[in-house]
Amino acid sequence: MTSKNESEAVIKLDSDLIASAEAYLEKLPKTPSEVIEYWAYLGKAAAEQLTEYEQLMLMSGAGEINVGHRQGKS
């Protein structure tokens, strides 16, 4: 049951912002197979960037990822 003391507000959003949000949502995985495919691509990207030791640390839960520019890599 809604209280009489609650108020409502109307917020107008720019149509470009709404279109961008809709386009973003279309890219998100919607089925289990799409989620697994997404994870596979993410894992492939990580494997290409991490050393074997870093991969083992990450998979064991003992490591963490910091995204940024690595020294010495171009």
Rank of each mutant, 00 (worst) to 15 (best):
Asn5Cys: 14
Lys27Trp: 03
Pro29Tyr: 02
Asp14Trp: 03
Ser33His: 10
Ser7Phe: 08
Leu28Trp: 01
Ala47Gly: 06
Ser15Thr: 12
Glu26Trp: 02
Ser20Phe: 06
Lys44Phe: 08
Glu37Ile: 05
Asp14Asn: 15
Thr31Ala: 08
Glu6Gln: 07
Tyr24Pro: 00
Ala47Tyr: 04
Ala46Glu: 10
Glu34Thr: 00
Tyr41Pro: 02
Lys30Asn: 07
Lys27Val: 06
Ala40Gln: 13
Ala45Asn: 04
Glu8Phe: 14
Glu37Arg: 14
Lys27Leu: 13
Glu22Met: 03
Lys12His: 15
Trp39Asn: 08
Leu25Gln: 06
Glu34Cys: 01
Ala45Ser: 08
Leu42Pro: 05
Ser3Asn: 14
Asn5Ile: 15
Ala47Thr: 05
Asn5Asp: 15
Lys30Met: 04
Thr31His: 04
Ala45Phe: 09
Ala47Lys: 11
Tyr41Trp: 05
Tyr24Met: 04
Lys4His: 09
Trp39Tyr: 12
Ala40Thr: 15
Glu6Tyr: 08
Glu34Phe: 03
Glu6Asp: 14
Ala40Leu: 15
Glu34Met: 02
Pro29Arg: 01
Pro29Thr: 07
Lys44Trp: 12
Leu28Ile: 02
Glu22Val: 02
Lys27Tyr: 02
Ser7Gln: 11
Glu37Tyr: 12
Leu17His: 03
Asp16Leu: 09
Ile36Lys: 15
Ser20Ile: 07
Pro32Ser: 10
Leu28Lys: 06
Leu13Asp: 00
Tyr24Thr: 04
Lys4Ser: 10
Leu42Ser: 10
Lys27Ala: 12
Tyr38Met: 09
Glu34Val: 02
Val35His: 03
Lys12Thr: 14
Ile11Leu: 11
Glu22Leu: 02
Asp14Lys: 09
Asp16Cys: 01
Ala21Met: 15
Ser15Tyr: 08
Ser33Arg: 12
Ala45Tyr: 03
Ser15Phe: 03
Leu17Met: 06
Ile18Ser: 03
Ala19Gln: 03
Leu25Cys: 05
Thr2His: 08
Ala40Ser: 11
Tyr38Lys: 08
Ile11Gly: 01
Asn5Arg: 13
Lys4Gln: 10
Asn5Glu: 13
Thr2Asp: 10
Ser20Leu: 12
Thr2Cys: 02
Ala46Phe: 13
Ala19Leu: 01
Leu13Cys: 01
Asp14Ile: 03
Leu17Val: 01
Val10Glu: 11
Pro32His: 08
Glu8Val: 15
Ser33Asp: 15
Tyr38Asp: 08
Leu28Met: 11
